[in-house]
Design a binder for these strands. Structure first.
Length: 415
DNA sequence: TGTCCACAGGAAATACGGGGGT
DNA sequence: ACCCCCGTATTTCCTGTGGACA
């Protein structure tokens, strides 16, 4: 056998990868990487296939009044994540402002994106930034001051103002103060015709709302249903066409992804993510995307999610996870209680030099892990032996391996 | 039946960090 | 430089509790 050099092996591999490349344009597998106009083009294609048609019709009739000089009421839009609320709205509002411009109707629309939780203060601050009424403060300025600046910035605008407020329920703490400003105070202080569009993924969102705000809030409601398999197939095939070379996807693959996704969440983003993972794996293996590949793509995707979640989490939460894993190893898989876990946590802190937190705070960390379903815990009373959380790890061994590796790396770096 | 364990989890207090106004 | 304001993280203090055991 002819001896191979590292150089020849490398050349072989690279040539192999190039000749077996199935991804034509990676960016179309990840919305984050697309620029605005490309996103809109993709959307237009999707909507042309009658996806989300009912919703777009509904939006059109709600806002039709704008072109006739009416003042439509506010709107609340509900739907689970990945049902295209944000994208549909963005697309629709762009179109609407084009039409308004053609008719010489003054119309402005702004997108307030609360994709991460924030308090009332930051919410107002973001709003102020949209109107260039203030720079991005971190702290130290009163709420009143912010409100006044927003009002001042809008004092001379007379036309329509559509405020698209994405994921309202992410306004934590004093949400009522924020909403009350938008709903009650702002419309009275500025000359613009204000139309609020609230988007939320909680269906019962306005139920626990300050009644005073609620009574002011005339709403038209619109619900985005999860995508069905047919919608997802459309969405996926457009991606396939743009991102992959022809023939890279074996028959049945799109159908399977669509079926899987529509069964358990109807989330288009996750469906596209699965497609992307499949494409990546296929390219690495030097073949096409096959049905069999999808299973490993799905598990890998799952694992990635947990790892990414934990890696971007605060250190204390990582430490808590580490102690659960450790305590659970020591107990050989049997369920463990809060006390044992806290002991493990304390040892972990001693080893890594991390500041210890009290038991109370540790309990909250455990609750958080439970929320992310990294662990499963239930409160159990063992009679005179007290009450405790019964904790089990809720992720596969493979994921745990990966998680603990990541945690350790993090702490080594901290010294 | 009452006791009492080993915590859960709410509320208030405190610490902390950062920024504005003067 | 000083003081005050605000938001967040954590601690302190507290009351509550299901059921095994005597």
């Amino acid at each position: 056998m002819e001896p191979t050099t590292v150089r020849s092996r490398m050349v072989n591999r690279i040539q192999h990868m190039v000749s077996h490349a199935i991804i034509k344009d990676r960016r179309f597998l990840d919305d984050e990487q697309l620029i605005r106009s490309e996103q809109m083009a993709v959307l237009e294609e999707i909507f042309n296939a009658n996806v989300r048609d009912a919703e777009i019709q509904e939006l059109s009739s709600h806002f039709a009044g704008v072109l006739r000089g009416d003042h439509p009421c506010h709107m609340a839009i509900w739907g689970k994540t990945g049902t295209g609320k944000t994208l549909t709205l963005r697309f629709f509002l762009n179109l609407l402002s084009e039409m308004a411009a053609a008719d010489h109707v003054p119309l402005r629309h702004e997108h307030l994106d609360f994709s991460t939780p924030r308090p009332c203060f930051r919410a107002l601050n973001d709003l102020a930034c949209l109107f260039n009424a203030s720079k991005l403060y971190k702290k130290g300025i009163s709420l009143e001051e912010l409100m006044l600046r927003i009002e001042a910035a809008l004092a001379s605008y007379q036309g329509y103002l559509i405020l698209f407020i994405d994921e309202v329920d992410n306004v934590r703490r004093d949400r009522d103060a924020f909403l009350s400003f938008l709903v009650r105070r702002l419309p009275q202080r500025i000359p613009a015709k204000l139309i609020l569009v609230f988007v939320s993924n909680r269906l019962n969102w306005p139920d626990h709302l300050d009644p005073r705000v609620k009574s002011f809030l005339k709403l038209n409601e619109l619900i985005f249903k999860p995508y069905d398999a047919v919608d997802l197939q459309h969405i996926l095939s457009i991606r396939v066409e743009k991102a992959l070379i022809p023939g890279a996807v074996e028959p049945g693959v799109i159908e399977k992804i669509a079926a899987l996704a529509s069964q358990d969440h109807g989330d288009a983003r996750q469906a596209v993510a699965l497609l992307a993972k499949g494409a990546y794996l296929a390219e690495k293996a030097g073949g096409n995307i096959t049905l069999g590949l999808l299973d490993s793509a799905a598990t890998e995707l799952d694992r990635d999610r947990y790892v990414a979640l934990l890696r971007s989490a605060p250190v204390q939460l990582q430490a808590a996870m580490a102690s659960v894993i450790e305590a659970s190893r020591r107990a050989k898989g049997a369920a463990i209680g809060t006390g044992e876990t806290y002991d493990a946590y304390q040892k972990f802190c001693n080893r890594s030099g991390l500041r210890k937190m009290t038991g109370r705070a540790f309990g909250d960390l455990l609750a958080e892990l439970d929320m992310y379903s990294l662990i499963r815990s239930r409160i159990l009373s063992r009679g005179r032996y007290g009450r405790t959380r019964e904790i089990t790890l809720d992720v596969s061994d493979e994921v745990i391996e990966k998680l603990s590796a990541n945690i350790n790396v993090n702490f080594d770096l901290r010294g």
